[in-house]
Amino acid sequence: MPKTDQPTIIAIVSQKGGSGKTTLAVNLATRAAQASQESCVIDTDPQATAAAWGDWRGDFLPVVVTAPPARLTRTIESAKKNGVEFIVIDTPPHADAAAREAIKAADIVLIPTKPRAFDLAALEPIADLVSFAKTPAFVVLNAVPTGATVLANEARKTAEGMGLSICPVELGDRAAFHRSSAKGETAAEIDPSGKAAQEVDALWKWLNKVLKKAQK
């Protein structure tokens, strides 16, 4: 885990497109900035969705930089030199090499997935990667429909059956996530008291507890 003078590094990985990696990355990095941490998103996806969000956002934290997987280590080192305290790595789908590099660099891996069969099946290769790397990893159920308790429970069981740990905080299928992304903002910025903002805050608090526990 990171030393006191080292940044916290979170890798967001999934082999499935549309799992919510970028949404999770920018919301967490912005929440870190709101907690007075110098934060940065490293976008390793050739589609550069996080970078586009950063362009729309303008000169507000988090900083968003693009980097191919081969330059990830150098980009992290550059961020460290610039005083960045919280780094989120956004990775592309269908790219084992990029996921492997991000997992290797990270203190914690978050694996967003929708609670659907095709999405859950895409967890298997990631489960193998994190098991090999021995980096702490947690599945984050994302875009969970309102009232879909049975669906969410089945998704948890499926992920656990692959040997993956489950984040206790779920992200619902909230319009605030979609609306905010198109403006270069986050759910908490367009609706601070909304359910999406509350979910991100709960995820942030849980993540910090996990990090503190791992550092002991």
Rank of each mutant, 00 (worst) to 15 (best):
G172K: 00
A29I: 00
L28A: 14
I76G: 10
A133W: 00
A176I: 08
G83Q: 13
A95R: 02
P68C: 04
A35C: 09
S19P: 04
W204E: 01
L24I: 10
W206K: 12
V63R: 15
K16E: 06
G161C: 12
T75P: 08
D191M: 03
W56Q: 12
A105G: 05
I42K: 00
G18D: 03
K81Q: 15
S193W: 01
A176K: 08
D201G: 14
L61D: 15
E77N: 08
A99H: 09
A117C: 08
P46F: 00
L151H: 09
L171I: 11
N27P: 01
D90L: 02
A98F: 13
E38L: 09
P93L: 06
T8H: 13
D5V: 14
T30N: 10
P115F: 12
A197V: 12
L207E: 03
A99R: 08
K195P: 05
T23S: 13
A52E: 05
L72M: 09
D173C: 03
I190N: 00
F138Y: 15
P7F: 00
A121M: 14
R174H: 13
K209Y: 10
E189A: 14
L203G: 06
G161F: 06
R174Q: 08
F60K: 15
D5C: 10
S193V: 13
T149V: 14
N142T: 03
G172P: 00
D119K: 05
A117S: 11
Q34C: 10
L110H: 02
A127L: 03
V130F: 02
R179Y: 12
A51G: 03
M1F: 09
M162L: 15
A35T: 04
F138D: 04
K81N: 11
